[in-house]
Design a protein around this nucleic acid. Sequence first.
DNA 1: TCAAAAATTGAACACTGTTTAAAATTATTA
DNA 2: TAATAATTTTAAACAGTGTTCAATTTTTGA
Lengths: 202, 202
Amino acid sequence: MGIAERKQEEKQDMQKRILDAARKIFLDKGYEKTSMRNIASEINYSPGMIYFHFKDKSEIFHELHKEGFRLLLAQLKILDKVADPFERLKAVGRVFIQFAQDNKDYYNLMFMVEEPAKESTEGGFKIAQEAINHLLELVKECQAEGRFVGMDQEYFSFMLLSSLHGICALFCKDRTASFQNKSNEDLMKYGYECFVSLLEKG
Amino acid sequence: MGIAERKQEEKQDMQKRILDAARKIFLDKGYEKTSMRNIASEINYSPGMIYFHFKDKSEIFHELHKEGFRLLLAQLKILDKVADPFERLKAVGRVFIQFAQDNKDYYNLMFMVEEPAKESTEGGFKIAQEAINHLLELVKECQAEGRFVGMDQEYFSFMLLSSLHGICALFCKDRTASFQNKSNEDLMKYGYECFVSLLEKG
DNA sequence: TCAAAAATTGAACACTGTTTAAAATTATTA
DNA sequence: TAATAATTTTAAACAGTGTTCAATTTTTGA
């Protein structure tokens, strides 16, 4: 069945072309301001054609959403070689913040855009779950070394993630204007270091 | 000039009616999904009429944005009677989180919606600035009592705000699904308490 | 009462996501 | 190879969006 095979490859190729165009415009103009017509005309096809390859705009969004997580997880995986769990935890934060700075638009897609509430419970968000589990595991390791004693694992992990996300969210939505003296980058960097020094006493 | 006076009152009245309608729909359907036609038909006027009283949709947004801050500041003002600054700081966090839970839509308007980048630097966002200054002052008071020694005020305040915002942001965008065992409310409450117990050691 | 000013309308413009019948292209079979 | 079937793509249409603007109504001041 060499033809069917090639057919499938062509189909995947087309999907890739659409995603490439979508990524380019999504990450430039944001989710809301990117139209299906924009994406279609980027690859010189008619708007309707996209609907043959993707269910709707939100399916394209979810594809890029997953892409973002894969990118972030790849960055975090590098830290596996850091032996001490607490050192690794601190580095995770730094990498997370760096990721948000370097990939503002992916970050928006991953954590800020109101997702069209689909497949979130079924199969689609496995990769986000995976990231959380990674964090839970890390906290557990720290606790095994006598850190964060008496803290509930899940609440503590949620708090960690929240603090990181808060820093990145304010950055991504430019809500840092009220701290006029400091640059965005410094606020994130040294703001996080403040948090770290709290962690060190816990 | 009693007529001009009444005229002005009528104008303010109309603006109030528009804002009331806008608030109702904004806070029910969110910013993006509320249309000018929705707002107009809510008060039985034509769409174009709104543009006589407000420049555009974003001006209405900014009005409600300010409204939200006034509401939050009113809640926080109650804490002025708490004498001990550190106790007050901890309470500020609890009130902030409670506000986000009770006013999810205001919170979205205030901290999450990508604002059409206007008047943010000029006169419009004084009230947000005021809230930040309040926080900075509070941190200073805590430091005067020997808390958070050696921390930069601004970075530390930014970190505080970030942590609070992170908790509320994940809640508002329903990004808490990955912590399946716990309810949203418990995650926020006990997540924050984890943070507080870190603060207590700093 | 009448002209000037203010307020309101409704149609129009250029967009949006999505659907769908028709057309064009490609594959399969007789 | 010719005819049929399946797949892929298009263009038009639908119902919606924010916004503008000429025309119209309402209100005001002389």
